[in-house]
Amino acid sequence: MSEQPEVLVERDGAVLVVTVNRPQAKNAINKAAAEGIGAAMDQLDSDDSLFVGVVTGAGGTFSAGMDLKAFLAGEKPHVPGRGFAGLVERPPAKPLIAAVEGFALAGGFEIALACDLIVAGEGAFFGLPEVRRGLLAGGGGLLRLPRKAGLPKATEWALTGDRIPAQDAHAAGVVNRLVPTGEALPAALALARQIAGNGPLAVQGTKRILTEGSEWPAAEAFARQWEIYAPVRASEDAEEGARAFTEKREPVWRGR
């Protein structure tokens, strides 16, 4: 009987579903898993028929973070150009949703934070426990968590290493949608399909402005926004969107 791959990749229409498939290791990330996720992100970015990605974990758990046993054996769960887990340093240009059940801890939480949206089951919890091991969260958690939760909450959670119930993460704005336990993936897919129904160029441009805009100098913000907006406004999709609206029908997006 052949071994299951470390990462499962499936299509759901215009949505790419990426599942970390190491339940025996609590979906901890080793080199093979990082490479599998990175390859999936490359596929999402390069395939014009894919509009949105969903990342989840097998067996009722999202991810325990880096596989420490593999790390001690000399493995580095990084992908050149994309960083830890093939994702955290360079997420895809297209929207990415984390569907979290069980727990997302350490690097697992950093994977979720690298996604644009998080959907979590009510029984899920999150955390950056690295300080309890004499380490720090170097996979983007300390950079992204303050933006999503605010500096006071992020500081408390990162310095204590506490586990954060999904309800608290939702109240802080880290989790976008809180759903019954076991429903995170179906809810994430429903959200992904809703996003995928919109103009793909417009969605990608919107994500880019949301991601980069806070770093722009105020005096340059509208000029930089225009650089992204102008090609979208001049696209065939923009014309199709206006035409479909006037003709009272659903648009047919071509991504150009």
Score class of each variant (00 low, 15 high):
1 M>P: 02
3 E>Q: 02
6 E>S: 12
10 E>P: 04
10 E>T: 15
12 D>Q: 14
16 L>C: 05
16 L>N: 06
32 A>F: 12
37 I>A: 09
39 A>Q: 15
46 S>D: 13
48 D>K: 12
49 S>V: 10
54 V>D: 00
57 G>L: 07
64 A>R: 01
65 G>P: 05
72 L>F: 01
79 V>E: 04
82 R>I: 15
86 G>C: 13
87 L>A: 12
88 V>I: 15
89 E>K: 14
90 R>H: 12
94 K>W: 06
105 L>F: 05
107 G>K: 07
114 A>F: 14
116 D>K: 14
117 L>P: 07
117 L>R: 14
122 E>F: 08
122 E>P: 00
123 G>S: 06
125 F>T: 11
126 F>T: 09
126 F>W: 08
130 E>N: 15
133 R>N: 06
134 G>M: 08
136 L>Y: 12
141 G>H: 10
141 G>T: 00
142 L>N: 14
144 R>H: 04
146 P>Y: 07
147 R>W: 14
156 E>Q: 10
158 A>Q: 08
159 L>D: 11
160 T>A: 03
162 D>M: 13
163 R>Q: 07
163 R>P: 06
164 I>E: 02
164 I>N: 00
167 Q>M: 06
171 A>R: 13
174 V>I: 10
177 R>A: 10
182 G>K: 14
185 L>H: 10
187 A>N: 05
195 I>R: 00
200 P>A: 05
204 Q>I: 09
206 T>E: 06
209 I>L: 02
211 T>L: 11
215 E>C: 07
216 W>V: 03
216 W>C: 08
218 A>W: 11
218 A>E: 15
219 A>S: 04
219 A>R: 06
220 E>M: 02
221 A>M: 03
222 F>Q: 07
237 D>F: 13
238 A>F: 12
239 E>I: 03
246 T>N: 04
247 E>D: 11
248 K>H: 09
249 R>T: 05
250 E>Q: 12
251 P>E: 09
253 W>I: 08
255 G>L: 08
